[in-house]
Design a binder for these strands. Structure first.
Length: 282
DNA sequence: CACTTGACCTGTCCGC
DNA sequence: TGCGGACAGGTCAAGT
């Protein structure tokens, strides 16, 4: 899915637009994509929008929460009552008409705006969950990497949970650190000059420290560029993110390294496509 | 227990 | 053009 920077970008886009609005109607087009009782959502006022790991939460006045997980191809797009979408133009950065054939759930707000949950592959979900139970959804997640609590010591102790696993698999484990996925894992490892296949037990303290900083830096940079749009990701306005224009390795196999000019390689680690520079990363 | 692989879905791209 | 296979931002369950 969208990883932390993409979900954070959606959150920032929604916050100023939907807080204070009331959900007038919810329309579930694909039952698989929605869990829970729509009656807990209908007629409720939105009090807050937040992110935890790669999940987005919309808090309601009755203390229920609409929780979204976008997995690989999910989108959350807000279309204001006056918006006219421009579809089909080759240079357009914007999604076409809504709804489309991957629209799964539609929320209609009292000002006439609509929130579209689109998801081509149907891996993602939306659920209505009471705030009392939300802790259960979050309790196995690791620390939020962009919060103060994500110190080097915390990161070190989290890594201790694994020892003989490739470092890339470990930093993508949501119970170790929340929000890092395939793109940002590849990029963080490049920035820390560490090969993705290295085992945790073989990392030097200096490398662990460098990786800790690289994770924070790459996620921050991802947010700055509005996230990554390899294929499906768009923000709440339907616009693509531009982080990949600056990526060092992700999706760049065969191209030259921005640092040493050697060719970028691709392999498979933990079942996922993995990009690296064999000269910059050791 | 620690770690790896397959399944969940739909669409696109690439080679023959 | 058509067809088969590999692959795609994630996470579970089942397998070794």
């Amino acid at each position: 899915m969208p990883e932390l920077p993409e979900v954070e970008t959606i959150k920032l886009g929604l916050q100023g637009q939907v807080v204070g609005q009331t959900i007038k109607k919810i329309e579930v087009l694909t039952p698989k994509s929605f869990q829970g009782d729509p009656r807990n959502v209908n007629g409720q006022k939105i009090s807050n929008v937040f992110r935890r790991a790669k999940m987005l939460g919309v808090e309601l006045g009755n203390s229920w929460i609409v929780l979204f997980h976008l997995k690989m191809t999910g989108q959350i797009i807000l279309v204001s009552n006056r918006a006219r979408f421009v579809g089909g133009h080759p240079t357009s950065d914007i999604q076409g008409e809504m709804p489309n054939n991957s629209t799964r759930v539609i929320f209609e707000l009292d000002n006439g705006s609509k929130i579209y949950f689109n998801d081509q592959r149907k891996f993602g979900w939306v659920k209505a969950i009471s705030s009392k139970l939300i802790a259960n959804s979050f309790n196995s997640l690791g620390p939020e990497p962009l919060e103060e609590t994500f110190t080097l010591d915390v990161f070190k102790s989290q890594l201790q949970k694994r020892k003989n696993t490739p470092v890339k698999v470990v930093i993508m484990d949501q119970t170790v650190v929340a929000g890092v996925g395939n793109i940002y894992a590849c990029e963080a490892l490049f920035m820390a000059n560490i090969l993705p296949t290295r085992r945790i037990k073989d990392l030097t303290p200096k490398e662990v420290s460098k990786l800790h900083q690289a994770i924070v830096d790459v996620l921050t940079l991802g947010i700055k560029h509005g996230g990554s749009s390899r294929s499906h990701y768009v923000n709440s306005e339907g616009k693509k993110g531009h982080f990949l224009d600056f990526a060092f390795v992700y999706n760049r196999s065969g191209e030259s390294c921005r640092t040493c000019q050697e060719v970028i390689n691709k392999t498979v680690v933990g079942g996922r496509g993995t990009f690296f520079c064999r000269f910059c990363q050791r």
